[in-house]
């Protein structure tokens, strides 16, 4: 256990859970397909963040997984290793994933995506439970990440005008 407030260089771990909800006008089958189909996943989750993509492998089955490696603006490589833990077609996807920036492990998470019919559309509930490791809360990393986010947001807003 921690003996004081977690700081940058201490060995600490933070556990946290958050939930995001969205409603899409498309059917659960369509939304599920967007999570299951490699090309579609690449479009909405991998591309468009302004990252240089070094690797994206994707095997959608229980026990299968994903490896993504990317970097932003010449920064350190970010690596995501995911494994599918449970798949119920059109209803539920559970996956665990680990993130690292360069040699530094950042976090390990368990994510549950639930799809329920909502009128003619789909209600999506995204719940992520995670362990956030020590030493990754560097101001530099956060600033780079935030800058990347804001630039991606700007580009997205331009496109959707």
């Amino acid at each position: 256990m921690n003996q004081s407030a977690p700081e940058k260089d201490e060995h600490s771990v933070i556990h946290s859970t958050f939930t995001i909800e969205r409603t899409y006008p498309q059917s659960p089958e369509r939304v599920f397909h967007a999570f299951a189909d490699k090309a579609t996943v690449r479009r909405w989750r991998i591309e468009g963040d302004g990252f240089a993509i070094a690797e994206f492998s994707f095997d959608f089955r229980v026990g299968g997984g994903e490896v993504s490696r990317f970097s932003y603006g010449g920064g350190p490589e970010v690596r995501l290793d995911a494994q599918f833990q449970d798949i119920v077609p059109d209803q539920r996807i559970v996956f665990s994933y680990r993130m690292a920036v360069g040699p530094q492990p950042m976090s390990a998470s368990l994510t549950t995506v639930e799809l329920t019919p909502s009128g003619d559309g789909t209600r999506l509930t995204y719940t992520e439970q995670g362990a956030f490791f020590d030493g990754v809360d560097s101001a530099q990393g956060r600033e780079e990440g935030t800058r990347g986010l804001l630039e991606a947001l700007g580009a997205e807003l331009q496109k959707s005008k």
Binding site: R22, P25, W44, L149, E156
Partner: peptide, 11 residues
Amino acid sequence: RHLDRLGQILA
């Protein structure tokens, strides 16, 4: 952001 983009791509 990803889930918003998913909505755009579905549309």
